[in-house]
Structures are given as structure tokens and as C-alpha cells.
Design a protein around this nucleic acid. Structure first.
Lengths: 181, 181
DNA sequence: TTGACTGTACCGGCTGGACGGTTTATGGTC
DNA sequence: GACCATAAACCGTCCAGCCGGTACAGTCAA
């Protein structure tokens, strides 16, 4: 069974461990037990622990970029509306992907260079911001506020309630479309 | 010699290792070598590795809160100007404290509950935002943008150049003082 | 002023356990 | 009967924490 679902089950288990107990507790044995198979089973799918971490980061970035692309297309791939797409992607990511994002933590802990794809994404994203209708500075602030929001969430230190986030999102939408002067 | 400086030297060494090689490479031996003493020496100052991590987080939060308090006092402890103080604290933290902030990483990696003091800080901070002159929503956005900026920096994925940050800070100053409408 | 004693700061070898990875075996399925 | 997915025992390494030392600065009493 399970061309892919077993792999995903392992990644889910790994993520849950990181989220609940911290990256230091993410061992092959622990992930195996949680995923309901043995360590050998895990090593069949991921030849090394490191490749599991790579897969973790990749799955997250893929999922987010999928949402972003989708939202962009809904905006007709209009670069002036990329901020709206980004906002939509971030908010829907928080709902749909849950705390998938905490995959970042083990990457930081073990091997910072796993974050290269993320660095690349941000570099590209910020370079595009001048195409928005509100100017680079304001666009950067909207982006940073969104990132701050989900990073605090992911680090587990956010004090924001869902309704707070909704109100913030509303103001951000305005900032993403109307230039302040 | 060194009532405190040896402790600090150890913390500095630990931080440098985390920053340069990731939290996984932070071992007592590595920290000892870098700090110029033996593992036994470290364990004399910190009975357990975990207590070293606690000290790391504590030192960072203390340093930041010191900067914040200082900035607040320069603003006459005026709650309506807390955002300006926060902005000043964050920017000067980035200069003065450098990447001290990456102390967070091992805390996350090993034991999420080490972040409790930080959670407490944010909770208090966001609760105060309604006292600002620009309204809670806008104040929250300024805060989040600042946090996003230094978190990206600390995670090592920020594409922002110093001059970018300066321009952003300028716009944030405006957002921290003038209410948009 | 000297010798016995105490506390502080640190060293470095040791060990037990945990963990990543290997190997061999096994049940299922086409 | 060949291949896939997984199990389970096993190995070597690494590392946190322990412990028995050492060096040295005070202190204090005789």
C-alpha cells in the first residue's frame, strides 16, 4: 500500500514530535513509534535522518508555494496584486497547513543550510515588491507583518487570537492596496 | 577571578557555535573548547546543559528588555509612545546585541517551554497596544513588522540590506505616530 | 609566619545510555 | 519466486553528567 502516504505519515509524525516536544526529541525511534512502524521502516523511505529533514522543509515550502501560486492565479497573475495573493496564501496556510511550518526548527537546529530554498524565495519576493501599487517600502511592511505573524505562531509565542488576526488582516489588506501618504 | 565574566564567556561561546553551526553542534565539549576551558569547567558554572540554555534565553530577554525600558524612559514612559520605544529597542538590539537572539534556537530545539518568558512578554506587550495613539490594529501591525524583520534576520533568511531596513524603519515610525484613515 | 584548613575555579578521565545507521530476516503480494 | 515494505537485533559513536583530582587564594589560630 501507499506509494506516498507512508512517507507522509512519517513526516506528519516527525512534525508532531517537533511541535510538541522540540526538535531535540526528534529521533528515528521516536518518529517510528509515532508513525506506527519501526526504525527500519523509516530508513527504508529516508536513507538518512538528514534526508528526512530535507523532505520536511521541502514539503512545507512546496505546500506554501502551491497556495501562493494558486492565489496569484486567482488574481490573474497581476504583479500589482501580489501582496493580496501573499496575504491570502499566508492566512490560508495557517488554516490548511496548521503547524506544518515548525519543520523549520529542526532545520535550524541541525543544518542551517537547509534553509537555502527559503532564502531564495524571500530574495525573489522582496525584489518583486517594487511592482506593487503601494511602493516597495509599504509593500515590505505588509510582507514583514505577515511573516512576523506566522513566525510568532510557529515559534509558539504568539498572543494573537483568531479574531485579532482577522482584524489585522483587514488592515493589511488596506495597506496592500491603498498607498498611504 | 571573574565573578561573572567566565559565565558570560561560556554563554558567548555557546551562542557563537549555535549561530555558526546550528544548535545540534552545541555540545559541552565544543562550548568548552571555544570558551577556553574544559567541560568540567562549564559544568561547574552550569550544573546541566539545560540550565545553560535557560541562561542563554534569559540573558537575551534581559538585554532586550533593558533596551526597551531605557527607550521607554527616554520617551518619558508615555504609553502613547511605546511603539516608538519598541522600534528603537528593536533596531538598537540588532546593532548592539548582534545575533545574540539566536539563543532562541537551541531553546526551541530542546525544550519549547523555555520560551515561557517570551510568551509572557508578548502577551503583555500586545495587551498594551490599545494605549497607543494609533489604535490597536495599526499598532499591532507595526509591532509585527518589526518582529518579522528581526525574526527573518535571526533565522538567517532575511534578504534585507541595512539601507532597506532604514527606509522601512522610517515608514514604521510614521505608522507608529500618525493614524492612517 | 607558618602551617592547617576552607572555599573557589577548573581539569580530564570515565561511563552509561541514547541514537544513527547496518544487516539480516520475514510476511505479503503480484 | 521475486520484489516490496517492514521488523528486529545489533554496532559504533557520541555525549551529558559524574567524580576524583589540582591549584590557588584567603583565613585564622598558635
Amino acid at each position: 500500500m501507499s506509494r506516498e502516504s507512508s512517507r507522509d505519515a512519517i513526516l506528519d509524525a516527525a512534525e508532531a514530535i517537533v511541535r510538541e516536544q522540540g526538535a531535540a526529541h526528534l529521533t528515528l525511534d521516536a518518529a517510528a513509534e509515532r508513525a506506527g512502524l519501526s526504525k527500519g521502516g523509516i530508513l527504508y523511505h529516508f536513507q538518512t535522518k538528514d534526508s528526512l529533514l530535507v523532505a520536511l522543509v521541502q514539503r512545507m515550502t512546496n505546500a506554501f508555494q502551491g497556495l501562493y501560486k494558486e492565489a496569484s492565479e486567482r488574481m490573474g497573475n497581476d504583479p500589482t496584486r501580489m501582496l493580496e495573493a501573499y496575504l491570502e496564501a499566508v492566512t490560508s496556510a495557517e488554516e490548511k497547513l496548521g503547524n506544518t511550518s515548525c519543520s523549520l526548527i529542526p532545520a535550524l537546529a541541525s543544518n542551517p543550510e537547509l534553509l537555502e530554498p527559503i532564502r531564495a524565495f524571500y530574495k525573489h519576493h522582496f525584489a518583486q515588491l517594487s511592482k506593487t501599487s503601494v511602493g516597495w517600502d509599504q509593500a515590505a511592511i505588509v510582507t514583514l507583518a505577515l511573516d512576523g505573524m506566522w513566525l510568532l505562531e510557529m515559534l509558539g509565542v504568539s498572543p494573537l487570537e483568531p479574531q485579532d488576526k482577522k482584524r489585522i488582516a483587514k488592515v493589511l489588506t488596506r495597506l496592500a492596496t491603498e498607498k498611504i501618504h
